[in-house]
Amino acid sequence: MPARLAPAKVNLFLHVGPPGADGFHPLSSLMAFADVGDQVAIELGEGSLMVSGPFARALGPERDNLIWTAVRAFVEELGRPMAELAMSLEKALPVASGLGGGSSDAAAVLRLIRDVFAPQIDDARLERVAARIGSDGPACLWARPVVAEGRGDRLSPAPGFPALDAVLVNPGIPVSTPAVYRRLDARGDFGAVAPPSMPDAFESPQEMAAWLALQRNDLEAAAIDVAPEVGTVLDMLRAEPETLLARVSGSGGTCFALCADDIEAGTLAGRIEALAPRWWVRRCRLGGPWD
């Protein structure tokens, strides 16, 4: 059964402006992808989606899964019926965690369908389909570092940077993105959304962490208001000596800590697991793509 990693998406910074007339908030974000995530697979079958893994029960009804949205959009782009598929999803990422899991799952399925059953669909057409699964769809399709603007659909290449050793931590509390945006609107903590000036490349994790410290996640305070446990995670990470930078990803509730190398990341992950054994903790590398 052809399979693919659907990597976790991490917002290294996320600048969010006030909503426009259409209700959408313009943003700019530097996105990277982790070498950990869900696993998706497809084969010819009876038109089904089997979900397994530690977070399978946290998902909503199967019909609401973005994977089905992706399949329907692909069929419409193809312009003709397609053979029924049996699909599987191993849900290893927490749900409603700010890691773009649903979009990444759907994007990975799109690539599998194209590669296995419809290689005549070129990259541009596949990107058009990915845009229909949500704001993170185009970025998740190729899972390479990008700067996203607008609704997240205008993408440009990210500066060069080394693979970043990191630790992802989630306190096990789903965080509703709409609730976070409502809280942001109530707070009025909007920032400028023009992408900051960036070098062509960062030479080391320390250099990149120092530059990222000048940026922000404008959803961070709102996410902590909605789920105070996120603030507890962030405070713990920021207090540890291995952490170069700690920040909330997306709308929460996962936080990430950048470290100098894999040894530092492993040490930090082990300590957090010992201090908070109920939390979801994963050592990873950020960059991408991880094909």
Score class of each variant (00 low, 15 high):
R111S: 09
R111G: 08
R111N: 10
I113C: 01
R114D: 06
R114Y: 11
D115M: 10
D115P: 10
D115K: 05
D115Y: 12
V116Y: 02
A118Y: 01
P119R: 08
P119V: 13
P119E: 11
Q120C: 09
Q120M: 07
Q120I: 07
I121M: 07
I121K: 05
I121F: 11
D122S: 15
D122G: 15
D123R: 15
D123N: 15
A124L: 07
A124E: 12
A124T: 10
A124H: 09
R125P: 05
R125H: 14
R125C: 08
R125M: 08
R125K: 14
R125F: 09
L126T: 04
L126G: 03
L126E: 01
E127S: 14
R128C: 09
R128P: 05
R128D: 13
V129N: 07
A130M: 09
A130W: 11
A130Y: 02
A130R: 02
A130P: 00
A131W: 05
A131C: 12
R132D: 08
R132V: 07
R132Y: 10
R132W: 10
I133E: 00
I133D: 00
I133T: 09
I133F: 09
I133P: 01
G134C: 06
S135A: 15
S135Q: 05
S135E: 04
S135Y: 00
S135C: 06
S135H: 02
D136Q: 10
G137L: 02
P138T: 15
P138Y: 04
P138S: 14
P138I: 10
P138E: 12
P138H: 14
P138V: 09
A139N: 03
A139E: 08
A139L: 09
A139S: 15
C140T: 01
L141F: 09
W142P: 03
W142Y: 15
A143H: 01
P145F: 07
P145W: 04
P145E: 08
P145S: 13
V146R: 01
V146M: 08
V146A: 11
V146D: 03
V147A: 07
V147T: 08
V147K: 00
A148H: 01
A148V: 02
A148W: 00
A148R: 00
E149Q: 14
E149M: 08
E149T: 14
R151Y: 04
G152T: 02
G152D: 07
G152F: 03
D153T: 13
D153L: 05
R154G: 12
R154K: 15
R154L: 13
R154F: 10
R154M: 10
R154S: 13
L155V: 10
L155T: 13
L155K: 12
L155W: 10
S156N: 08
S156G: 12
P157F: 12
P157R: 11
P157Q: 11
P157M: 12
P157D: 12
A158F: 07
A158L: 07
A158T: 06
A158G: 12
P159T: 12
G160P: 00
G160M: 01
G160K: 07
F161M: 06
F161E: 01
P162I: 09
P162N: 06
P162D: 11
P162F: 14
P162T: 12
A163M: 05
A163E: 11
A163P: 03
L164V: 11
L164I: 14
D165H: 15
D165N: 14
D165S: 15
D165A: 15
D165T: 06
D165I: 01
A166H: 08
A166P: 03
V167Y: 02
V167E: 02
L168P: 00
